[in-house]
Amino acid sequence: MSRRPLGERVVSAARQARDHAAGKIALTEHLPVIPEEIDVAAIRARAQLSQAKFAQRIGVSAATLKNWEQGHRKPSGPSLVLLAMLNKNPHIVEETLRTDK
């Protein structure tokens, strides 16, 4: 988060939008980079959970998790995104879905 006053940030954003609309600048789109390969066993180890507990935490069956870890299958789609997030923060599920807020 910028430490500049809110008014300065709003004016700057308005100028940037104006310049973009006029074709003076091209704004870059920041898309997430989803890895093609991910080490599921290492992510689970960092979370310090058994296969059963980790599978339950991410909403997949223990058999699916085991297949990913053994290389028989690969996670894809939303599972791959969730695993990439867990790779960055092993506690993101608990932090996000905590019910004691």
Rank of each mutant, 00 (worst) to 15 (best):
S2C: 12
S2F: 04
P5M: 09
L6S: 12
L6M: 14
L6G: 04
G7R: 14
G7Q: 14
G7W: 09
R9Q: 14
R9F: 06
R9D: 12
V10N: 06
V11Y: 07
S12D: 07
S12G: 08
R18Q: 09
D19Q: 14
D19C: 07
H20Q: 11
H20W: 09
A21Q: 12
A21F: 05
A22F: 05
G23H: 07
A26H: 01
L27H: 00
L27G: 02
T28L: 03
T28K: 02
E29Y: 06
L31A: 11
P32T: 03
P32A: 10
P32I: 13
I34R: 12
P35H: 02
P35S: 04
P35V: 07
P35G: 05
P35R: 04
I38T: 07
I38C: 09
V40C: 10
A41V: 02
A41H: 03
A42S: 10
I43V: 15
I43Y: 02
R44Y: 08
R44F: 05
R44G: 05
R46F: 02
A47L: 07
L49Y: 01
L49W: 00
S50T: 15
S50P: 03
Q51G: 05
A52S: 11
K53H: 08
F54Q: 09
F54T: 09
Q56M: 03
R57G: 01
R57T: 09
R57E: 10
I58S: 00
V60I: 15
A63R: 13
L65H: 02
L65K: 08
K66P: 00
N67S: 15
W68D: 06
Q70I: 03
G71T: 00
P75T: 02
G77I: 10
G77N: 13
S79M: 03
S79L: 02
V81C: 08
L82N: 07
L82A: 11
L82M: 14
L83P: 04
L83Y: 06
L83V: 08
A84S: 15
M85R: 10
M85C: 12
L86K: 06
P90C: 04
I92Y: 03
I92K: 07
V93G: 09
R98L: 11
T99Y: 07
T99N: 11
D100I: 00
D100T: 08
K101L: 12
